Simulated assay, not measured.
Amino acid sequence: MNDRHRYQAIRRLAGGVAIVFGLLTVVSGGLVLFGGEQALQLAGNVVSFVLWFNFLAGFGYVLAGLGLLRRKRWAYRVFLALVTGTVVVLSAFSLHVLQGGAYEIRTVVALGFRTAVLLLLTWIAAIATANP
């Protein structure tokens, strides 16, 4: 496999990961947001602004993933906006925790994981869409 094919494979994989990640995010967030009181109770100490941001960002992951699969330059900008927003939400969440706000440890893990995945996807998109 030459470099061109390797880059195409990485771009396609990253686009697919973004789409699946986005769909899972929309479904899981949607179940908590719109699943009624029982779903909300099962979720535990939900931090509303994190939940809403992640739910809405899930649609952005799908859009950016589709753009990356089609090697569109705007995909990079969508990923950049998503990672920027995630870092802002992570910062606000950290402040919430430091001020004694209720939270679940899985939120800490999930935000860290999301940030890492988005940084990687943004980097791949920057390279993959630089010279379409």
Rank of each mutant, 00 (worst) to 15 (best):
T122S: 08
F55K: 06
L33R: 04
G30S: 11
F59T: 05
L69T: 00
V87T: 09
G16V: 04
L56V: 15
N45G: 11
Q8P: 07
L31H: 11
F49H: 14
L68E: 01
R12V: 06
R11V: 04
L80P: 06
A57D: 02
F79D: 05
Q38G: 07
G112N: 07
T86V: 13
A14D: 02
L90T: 09
L118W: 04
G16A: 04
L119K: 10
R114A: 09
G30Q: 08
V78G: 01
L51H: 09
Y76R: 00
T122P: 00
V27R: 08
N131D: 15
L121H: 02
G22W: 03
V88L: 09
L13E: 09
R6P: 07
V27T: 11
A130I: 10
T84P: 03
N131Q: 15
G101E: 08
L33A: 00
Y76F: 09
T86E: 07
Y103D: 01
G22A: 06
V47N: 06
L51A: 10
T122Q: 02
Y61I: 05
A102M: 14
L31Q: 13
A126N: 12
L56S: 15
L90F: 10
L111T: 02
I105N: 15
L51P: 07
L31M: 15
Y103E: 03
L33K: 03
Y76L: 02
F113Y: 13
V88I: 10
V78E: 00
L111V: 05
R4V: 15
K72H: 12
S94T: 13
R6Q: 14
G16I: 05
G60N: 01
L42Q: 14
T129H: 03
R77L: 13
R70Q: 15
A126M: 13
A43H: 06
L68I: 08
A81W: 05
I105C: 15
R4C: 15
Q8E: 14
R71I: 07
A81R: 04
G85L: 05
F93Q: 03
R73P: 00
E104M: 08
L33W: 01
N45Y: 13
W52T: 09
L118T: 00
T107S: 09
L98T: 13
R77H: 15
R71V: 05
H5W: 15
L13N: 11
L31C: 14
W74Y: 10
L63W: 06
I124H: 00
G44R: 12
N131E: 15
A125L: 04
T25Y: 02
G101A: 05
A130D: 13
V88G: 07
T25M: 01
A81P: 00
A43L: 10
R71Y: 07
G36L: 05
R71W: 07
A18V: 08
V97G: 03
G85I: 00
V109E: 12
V87W: 06
A57W: 03
Y7P: 04
V109T: 12
T86G: 08
L24C: 11
G101K: 08
